[in-house]
Design a protein around this nucleic acid. Structure first.
Lengths: 355, 355
DNA sequence: ATTAAAATCGGGTACGTACCCGCAATATAC
DNA sequence: GTATATTGCGGGTACGTACCCGATTTTAAT
């Protein structure tokens, strides 16, 4: 079989420009040592031939290896949400490893701001070429990314964003629209009467996310003139007992709650509560494809789960770094993930497919 | 920066086995000319070092180029559904082109069985190494794929499947479950009364798909003891006038239709009809992320669209061929796509993201 | 034992790019 | 003018694997 005859490489460029391959290489990589005249001549030929470097050969010959750092929460017993992004990181890792790219993953504790800081400092010491991070702690993330900017290390946010921080990209959900959709799903077959309960279960972190989601949620109701009374429950402890105690209080005060929206993945706690109290007829919508949540989806306690492709977020973030650092390509700065709707009927197909 | 010191290549294997690189190469590629003894020795070292060939170097050195054929319907004025798979093919194409893989795309006319046969024959004449096809015409597809099997050309089905045909893989929806979900969405907030209309608009092709979807649809209603009367409308012409004429008849006979399920992407015709007749309060669910359908989703005539990631189907199918032919890897034989639910609220994020 | 054939193997080049080393030409200093 | 930087450029090797071309050894045939 023959090679593609329409492909021209540096050799052909050098031949046409009457220079050596080395000179062409210098022009391509913007290195010094070429006169303006020949540089111009070579650039014209490059443009004329629409030269596309052969990445295989390029990466094979290059000895410049690239190190990427990943900074995400550790997978905890409380929730295995972060196992999905970790999987995405690993998928990208195996894919780009032959290109001379190494990955080091740093985990922090979602209940401990200091662990974030510690790990972030380790990254800075290490001297990496690019960073993928989940900015779970706003202040610490800002400090860290400012330092990255100073050191000219590109970084990508996943899961939630800090705008104005000059990240290379944000890859994650549009939280406002996600809450907006949540309201639609929750009220889609609801009657005119009855209250709505919005539950936020978290240890005071990720508040910013929560606010955007609730804003979108309320916005939907307002735009559609749905004047349900909205009760709020802020639960700062994530263990089941605290959740149950809190909800019991809410229910004694409000008997006619017809629908519950949980703003994050801890919806399974609420589902367990409803099952224990035999209140399964209440509509329940929450977030994320976790084992526990799927169970309650299958028993019918949870009506809908909303999900933002956590695996793909991380995978794409890695590829964004790869394309920037290795290929020098421009990337989309804001990449909103699809807002997926998971029900009992389609949940079995919402997994990571192997090739 | 230094190279990964944990990586060992053929050179190291050759050194340890006291043979030349060429001999190691012969063992790796199962070529003849190596005594059993040295072959065994080399294989042991390969296993011991967990040797992973460097694909970059491998594909760079290899002159064996691989040709993939794609056989899908032409994008027509009637519907641009197939532009999504085409896009997926092209995305995969640019990604694997540097690996020495060429793609030739053949289009057939969904209204003309013969065009399928003609294009299929062109592929066989051409002598390609792998085929991606949509088996829109069952009989012709069987004939073609049998011939592929005889010639030992692997092939992958997308969009719909022909089981028992020994394809390398099927990548597409689980149609039964898709119809099942359709019934859930259609009846989710429906009252106890009123009839359901199931509409199939197509020129008698793809019947097999339709049947599976309808089966799933009815199955949901049955399992949930929803005893609505179901009307059926089979419309064999795809132009709007034919659809409108047909639906008018159905509506004169049945005044109390409360919900309509369209089994394919032509749901926009039904939506137009409902808008013209001022019957927008009827629930409407159908298939596929087409411009026309999204318009009606946004006006509220269509309530839900179901979608099976057509772009990714084609992309994955290409990668399956790549992994099989280039990497010699085993692949998953049946890859069901997620069954995505598109509403007015999340539709804007359901597009193909650029890196 | 001699010769032919077959089996087994090594040397070496190529793939397209990166990049080191060093030579020539030109510019600058005195 | 000569001596010294500086600039511009080419030769050549390396990356890890594929594969051609032959050389050597072993086996089979006579």
């Amino acid at each position: 079989m023959e090679k593609d005859p329409t492909y021209f490489g540096v050799k052909e460029i050098a031949r046409r420009a009457n220079v050596s391959i080395a000179t062409v290489d210098r022009v391509i990589h913007n290195r010094t040592g070429v006169s303006e005249k020949t540089k111009k001549r070579i650039n014209e030929i490059i443009k004329e031939l629409d030269y596309q470097p052969n990445i295989l050969a390029s990466r094979l010959a290059s000895k410049n290896i690239i190190i990427l750092a990943v900074l995400i929460p550790r997978v905890s017993e409380e929730t295995d949400f972060w196992s999905a992004p970790l999987h995405g990181v690993q998928r990208a890792e195996t894919e780009i490893k032959p290109y001379g790219i190494q990955t080091i993953t740093f985990f922090f504790d979602l209940n401990d701001e200091n662990s974030f800081e510690t790990q972030a400092n380790l990254i800075l010491e290490k001297g990496v070429n690019g960073v993928l991070l989940s900015p779970s702690f706003i202040a610490q993330s800002i400090r860290f990314t400012e330092e990255c900017r100073r050191l000219k290390i590109p970084f990508v946010f996943i899961d939630s964003n800090i705008p104005q921080q000059h990240s290379l990209a944000y890859i994650g959900p549009h939280l406002f629209k996600s809450g907006y959709l949540g309201a639609k799903l929750l009220t889609y077959r609801k009657g005119e009467e009855g209250k709505i309960l919005v539950v936020n279960i978290s240890k005071e972190i990720e508040n910013y996310n929560y606010l955007q989601i609730e804003e979108g949620f309320r916005s939907y109701l307002k735009e559609n003139h749905l004047n349900f009374e909205i009760i709020r429950a802020d639960i700062n402890e994530t263990d089941y007992l605290s959740v149950a105690r809190n909800l019991t209080q809410v229910f004694t005060k409000n008997e006619d709650i017809e629908a519950i929206f949980v703003t994050n993945s801890r919806v399974f706690s609420v589902a367990t509560f409803l099952e224990n109290k035999h209140k399964k007829e209440i509509a329940l919508v929450g977030y994320d494809f976790l084992k526990e949540n799927i169970q309650h989806l299958n028993t019918g306690t949870i009506d809908f789960l909303i999900c933002h492709k956590p695996e793909e977020q991380a995978y794409r973030a890695m590829m964004v770094l790869y394309h920037t650092l290795v290929r020098g390509q421009q990337v989309e700065k804001t990449q909103y993930m699809p807002i997926d709707i998971i029900t009992r009927e389609n949940q079995e197909f919402y997994q990571i497919l192997p090739i």
